[in-house]
């Protein structure tokens, strides 16, 4: 097959932009699943909640969606802490994490989706902002602003979270809890409190990721499901706990999906993430940069 060079180049660039956005979507699960060992499969529901928060506030007051995403993070942080409390009392404390815990998050995912359907209906919703529409042209490469801005800001977010985890006291405690909760207890820190904060952060990222998602494309409640495969593929491929690995995996998935969509049609793209996930699980479960 003769591949035209500028088509391929554009596909790769679009993939990198998409990958940057995927990093914002996956960072929360990298924290909750990778570091805390909580398989929060309801993450997409919280991301959609972020989308609809952006939609409502943008529609009422015309605030910029990215600003909304950043401003609503404290609310999502609190929500995350509440969900973790519930999860802790119902499952972690009893030591029944496996099936019941998964069923709990699955129920949350479903309840979230159906509630959004009941409130907003199944129509596609979108936000308005000046940068949705125009593109920057660099020679033969086209950079749509609605992809570029989420990508840039999501890299900033990943940087901030990484800095927080590696420099601040609580951040280091979160990394410690992911390695050995028992030892943390011996250092007179409560693993439960640290995990609660970490889970709060993982849900807080959904506010921003949701705002990005609704900038990139119109949103309806059931699209969240498409992201489960992507999020967990990225998380596993990136090696579960490693932020650089997560970033690398996001870019990889973005590029592969974008090339698939360009050359085989967008209807095949959803299968890519799963294929990647299955291959990773079968061949190298430790991921790209796993320990």
């Amino acid at each position: 097959m003769l591949v035209s060079f500028d088509l391929l180049l554009n596909a790769v660039v679009a993939g990198i932009l998409l990958g940057g956005f995927y990093a914002a979507v996956s960072i929360g699960v990298t924290i909750s699943f990778g570091m805390l060992d909580i398989a929060n499969i309801s993450q997409p529901a919280f991301i959609l909640l972020g989308c609809y928060a952006a939609y409502v506030i943008n529609g009422t007051w015309g605030v910029d969606p990215i600003v909304i995403g950043v401003v609503t993070t404290p609310l999502f942080f609190l929500l995350g802490m509440v969900v973790y409390r519930l999860y802790y009392y119902a499952f972690e404390r009893r030591g029944e994490q496996a099936i019941q815990g998964l069923a709990f998050f699955f129920g949350l995912l479903f309840v979230g989706e159906v509630s959004l359907v009941l409130v907003f209906g199944v129509d596609y919703r979108f936000v308005e902002a000046r940068y949705i529409g125009p593109s920057i042209h660099l020679g033969i490469v086209e950079l749509p602003l609605r992809m570029l801005l989420p990508c840039v800001f999501s890299l900033v977010m990943v940087g901030v979270v990484q800095l927080y985890l590696s420099r601040s006291f609580i951040g280091r405690a979160i990394l410690a809890v992911s390695q050995d909760p028992g030892a943390l207890q011996l250092m007179a820190a409560s693993p439960t409190r640290i995990k609660q904060i970490a889970f709060g952060i993982s849900i807080a990222t959904c506010a921003v990721a949701g705002a990005f998602l609704i900038i990139i494309q119109p949103v309806e409640p059931s699209i969240g499901r498409d992201y489960i495969g992507r999020i967990f593929a990225i998380c596993v491929l990136g090696g579960m706990t490693s932020m650089p690995g997560m970033l690398l995996a996001s870019m990889l998935l973005g590029i592969v999906e974008s090339i698939t969509a360009t050359f085989y049609g967008p209807s095949w793209a959803p299968a890519v993430a799963f294929g990647l996930l299955l291959i990773t699980l079968a061949v190298r479960p430790a991921g790209l940069l796993g320990r």
Partner: peptide, 27 residues
Amino acid sequence: LTLRLRGVFFAIATLAFTIVVQTLIVN
């Protein structure tokens, strides 16, 4: 492919699996 790993991975794989089989049928 997935049962040799921890149960959580099997659960996630089945969740994503639905999307893929659906993609195959759609195409």
